[in-house]
Design a protein around this nucleic acid. Structure first.
Lengths: 130, 130
DNA sequence: GGTTGACCTTACCATGATGGGAAGGTGAAC
DNA sequence: GTTCACCTTCCCATCATGGTAAGGTCAACC
């Protein structure tokens, strides 16, 4: 299976598959004589795992860790949970941060008439440290 | 006023002040004979404006636009509002995205026992496309 | 006068995940 | 034998920010 098909089947672009190989997130694959990468169903499995983890916002570093836990039949689920909990905390922090920004802007926007006159609470808010 | 004092007074690091100058977000300042940048109260005003806007998550590109609207006494508040509304929409999208990630992970974490055994719904969820 | 320490300067490199594009080789079908 | 889709590597860009290195400046103090 060529990289293009692996990309289609996994939802990871060919570009990214090569990148993941470069940074050691996935192992180097077999190559044809011409140098084309060949992917097995097992490789696809890994790529889908990475795709899932990425769509939950895990960093590639975290995913490297998750992959090794996945492969490790002796793992303690506590290790996985700790990693996920850490990411959960980070997400919550980020959401809080963005929500505060959102609320501030929303308030400014709500008070702006949005007409042809220059008077604008948004600009004023920014200028005065709101 | 040297760059260090301007940094302290505005909350923007010296590094970033230089960077903002490089990319044309702020104008080049006067220099002493030795080449030291000199900042006026007006410059400080601008830096504080930038700082405020950054802390609401506006991009430097947006801020460039906001600064010109701020300076433009003929502006229509509708233009400012449109820019802010656009950013508001982007923030809401991002918040939604992160919240969905958060909820998914939270559910996985809630079902993981987090003990010494390998069985783990988080890993399983990732492996099966959850 | 000389040293010290805090400040300034520019220039380059790094982050994290992804995309774009160029220049060139390969494979299969027609 | 050409054509077209695919593959290869390599380099550059994003975005805002930080780090570091190598070197110049200033003021104070002995």
């Amino acid at each position: 299976m060529n990289i293009g098909q692996a990309a289609k089947a996994s939802g990871v672009t060919a570009k990214m598959i090569r990148h993941y190989e470069t940074i050691g997130l996935i192992a180097q694959t077999h190559r044809t004589e011409a140098g084309y990468r060949q992917y097995t169903p097992t490789d696809l499995h890994n790529l889908r795992f990475i795709k899932s983890a990425r769509s939950l916002g895990f960093s590639l570093d975290d995913i490297k860790h998750l992959l090794s836990l996945w492969q490790d039949k002796q793992r303690a689920s506590a290790d996985v949970k700790a990693l996920a909990q850490h990411h959960l905390d980070a997400l919550n922090s980020k959401i809080l941060e963005l929500t505060q920004m959102r609320d501030s802007i929303q308030e400014l926007v709500a008070h702006c008439q949005g007409n042809q006159r220059p008077d604008c609470p948004i600009i004023n808010g920014l200028a005065c440290g709101h």
